[in-house]
Simulated assay, not measured.
Amino acid sequence: MPFTTRRRPATTTTTTARPYRRSIFARRQPRVVHHHQQRKPTLKDKVTGALTRLKGSLTGRPGVKVSPV
């Protein structure tokens, strides 16, 4: 081997698998509901619920914070 070429040491690279992260806007698989039909909550539903909880916290009314079932 000529002296101008240099051998690199053998290195091994290991990769770690990262868990799959889903965006909040990604569609999920439909839930299996056997007793009654439920609709999937939209982003509007989530924002409305968060604002309602905030309103209940600010006004000091815990009954407003509780989400109806």
Rank of each mutant, 00 (worst) to 15 (best):
R39P: 10
T11G: 08
Q38F: 06
Q37W: 10
P68E: 00
S67L: 00
R31V: 08
A10R: 06
L54K: 07
P2H: 02
T14S: 06
H34G: 04
P41V: 00
P41N: 06
V47C: 12
V33N: 15
H34R: 11
R7S: 05
P9H: 10
Q37V: 15
T16F: 09
R18G: 10
P30N: 12
R28M: 09
R6L: 06
T11I: 03
L58E: 13
V47R: 14
T16G: 06
V64M: 07
T15M: 05
R18N: 13
G49P: 00
T4A: 12
Y20Q: 09
H34I: 01
R28F: 08
T48A: 05
G56R: 10
T16W: 03
A50H: 15
P68D: 02
K44Y: 10
V33L: 13
H36L: 10
P19N: 06
V33R: 09
R7L: 03
R31C: 11
T5S: 11
S67W: 02
K46R: 15
Q37G: 08
T4K: 06
T12H: 13
G63N: 14
K40V: 02
L58R: 13
R21V: 15
A17M: 04
H35V: 14
S67Q: 03
R27S: 15
V32F: 09
F25W: 13
A26W: 04
A17Q: 10
G63M: 02
P9S: 08
P62V: 05
T15I: 09
K46N: 07
G49N: 11
R21A: 13
A50V: 10
R27F: 14
F3T: 00
P68Y: 01
P68W: 00
G63P: 00
K55R: 13
R39L: 07
Q38E: 05
T15F: 04
M1S: 07
R22M: 12
R18H: 09
Q37S: 10
A26V: 08
T15A: 11
T59I: 12
A26L: 05
R53L: 04
I24L: 14
R22H: 15
R18F: 01
T4H: 11
H36Q: 07
P62F: 08
Q38S: 04
T11F: 07
T13A: 03
D45T: 04
Q29V: 00
P41E: 03
T48Q: 02
P19H: 12
T15V: 13
R22D: 15
K65R: 13
R61N: 15
H35M: 15
H35C: 09
R39F: 09
K44S: 01
V66P: 05
M1C: 01
R21Q: 15
H36Y: 12
T13I: 11
P30A: 12
K55V: 03
R27E: 15
G49K: 05
K65Q: 14
F3L: 09
V64C: 07
T5I: 14
T13E: 06
